[in-house]
Amino acid sequence: MSLATTANVTPQQNWLERLGAGHIILAIALVLYPLVASDFFLTQIGGYSLIFGMLGLSLMLLAGYGGMVSLAQITVAGIAAYAIAILGNNNSNILGFGWPWWLAVPFAVLAAALASALIGWISVRTEGIYTIMITLAIATATYYFAQQNYAIFNGHSGYTGIRAPAFWGIGWRDARPFYYLCLGLAVLSYAAVLYGSRSTFGMTLQAIRDNPRRMRALGYHVTAHKVFAWLLAGVIAGLAGVLLVWFNGRVSPGTIGVDAAIDVLIIAVIGGLRHPIGPFLGAVVVVLMQTFAIDIVGAERFNTLIGMVFLVIVFVSPDGILGLWGRIKPHLAQESLRPGQ
């Protein structure tokens, strides 16, 4: 990880310096955001961006560090969301075991992580571009399965009436608590990914991305490392899925459809896959576009707009907005964000 803003830290620095000025300013801005934002901006923009940022982050972990571009992240999140609906309470009169949230959430995240590891195990059987095909096939097949199966997924209509828990005297679906909940989990995931990327495991994963054959020759278990990365990504995507189902109050096959799967990829690519902050950046851009493009192009042709933006980004700057910044930054400082690879 040579591109992180704080990559060249030395142990002598104190924790404040190690955190970096950018992170501190960003953190203060995000914590103070509810003071200026209306409820709409707090949840529909803030919370939603953070949730999709986490989904993008789970993809960034796999794609950026592991070189495995997955289109199944929304599927993993959907498994957590369905698990919350099935284990907890819902209004659809199907299943709904009525578990309390503190029991249902760990199980939902665990289910998502295991599903992710399974998807990973299937897709790392092949290499490179095959991953994207296999994960897309899995995502699409899961979508059709959720749609045709009534015993588990309640078919086309899915589950409705899922409520976020209320404890400590706070209703966590209210605008401000929900925003802070999303922010807390997003920051936690972000920090974990950033820390993990510099850990032994993170370094090994990146080495495997760059040269799997050499790592295998050096005695590393390539498949195990990749599958473990999928497991970690599954935890993040699962948490995002829990937040998503609390946010929407419902989950249906449409939640995990191919459009949504592609949306996550678009978010991650527009933001940039080379640093964990990229997906959050992409999520803010896409959510803002989603909300306000309706005024410009009308609700009907939104997908054309986002598709065009996506195409332009892929053509002009393969590293997304972060890559654009990386091209401007050398003019300001000496170091490029992306030294030649």
Binding site: I129, I132, L265, F302, N303, T304, G307, F310, L311
Partner: peptide, 21 residues
């Protein structure tokens, strides 16, 4: 490979939307 695939995804999004139009 990856950018080609991403571009084809972008094309499919735009194409699906325009066909819907």
């Amino acid at each position: 490979d990856l950018r080609q695939t991403l571009v084809s995804i972008g094309i499919s999004i735009v194409a699906a939307d325009l066909m819907l139009a």
